[in-house]
Simulated assay, not measured.
Amino acid sequence: MLTAPQIFAFLAAALVLTATPGPDNLMVLSMGISRGRRAGMAFGFGCALGCLSHTLLAVVGVSALVAASPLAFGLLKGLGGAYLVWMGVQAWRHAGRASVSGSVGGDASLRQLFVKGLIANAINPKVVLFFLAFLPQFVVAAQGSVAAQLGLLGLLFTAQAALLFGLLGWFSGSVGAWLNRRPAVGPWLDRLAGTVFIGLGLRLIVSR
């Protein structure tokens, strides 16, 4: 269903994008710094599993679109490519504006932190748009069920996010201190992610 080149290309892009400083992973770091590694990991696992809801929406919505009109699916991929280019440009324009803080307070249990991360990710409309734009770029309709490919890609994204967020939570104190001592690193991570976004979007637009 998914070829090895598909999987490797997808995971490479997903790892770069997940590692780039953003609301989710910065909150994981902040939670771990202020509340301890177990709190950071609980919140991070919740954020990662929240991706499953976006995967389901992508599978249902995109699959219905393909069934209705292959031309419409091509249009969706083209619009998704343009959206990824726009996100890449924004990442370059606003590189380095995110920061790591250790000021997250409260006395929520690990379960509550997990649920908080799950809900925060699941209801974020920007993540919904991202999944609708990102996942279809790696789907090859000639290789079988589009729904199955989208589902597997979503599961792969969730798995790598859970692994990376778990590691961020576990090493939050060290990672947060390292990033704060090196303020120049954040902007370059943003630019790297922006380049990946632009590259993915342009590849799709040109290939069409």
Results as ranks from 00 to 15, higher is better:
Ile7His: 14
Ile7Ser: 12
Phe8Glu: 10
Phe8His: 06
Ala9Pro: 12
Ala14Phe: 00
Ala14His: 00
Leu15Val: 13
Val16Pro: 02
Val16Ser: 12
Thr18His: 06
Ala19Met: 10
Thr20Tyr: 01
Pro21Lys: 04
Gly32Tyr: 01
Gly32Lys: 01
Ile33Ser: 01
Gly40Cys: 09
Ala48Tyr: 02
Leu49Thr: 14
Gly50Thr: 00
Ser53Phe: 05
His54Asp: 04
Leu57Tyr: 11
Val59Leu: 05
Gly61Thr: 13
Gly61Ser: 14
Ala64Met: 13
Ala64Asp: 10
Ala68Trp: 08
Ala72Ser: 10
Gly74Glu: 11
Leu75Ile: 15
Gly81Ala: 07
Gly81Met: 00
Val85Tyr: 00
Val85Ala: 08
Val89Asp: 07
Arg93Met: 12
Arg93Gly: 06
Ala95Gln: 12
Ser101Arg: 15
Ser103Ala: 15
Gly106Thr: 03
Arg111Val: 09
Leu113Cys: 07
Leu113Gln: 10
Leu113Ile: 03
Lys116Pro: 02
Phe130Trp: 10
Phe130Cys: 01
Leu135Asn: 03
Gln137Thr: 03
Val139Lys: 04
Val140Pro: 10
Ala141Cys: 09
Gln149Leu: 03
Leu153Tyr: 09
Ala159Ser: 11
Ala161Gly: 10
Leu164Ile: 15
Phe165Pro: 00
Gly169Leu: 06
Trp170Ala: 09
Phe171Met: 08
Ser172Phe: 05
Gly173Tyr: 13
Gly173Arg: 12
Gly173Glu: 14
Ala177Ser: 09
Leu179Asn: 06
Asn180Lys: 13
Asn180Gly: 09
Arg181Thr: 14
Arg182Phe: 02
Ala184Pro: 05
Gly186Lys: 07
Gly199Met: 04
Gly199His: 07
Leu202Cys: 11
Leu204Met: 15
Ser207Glu: 14
Arg208Pro: 05
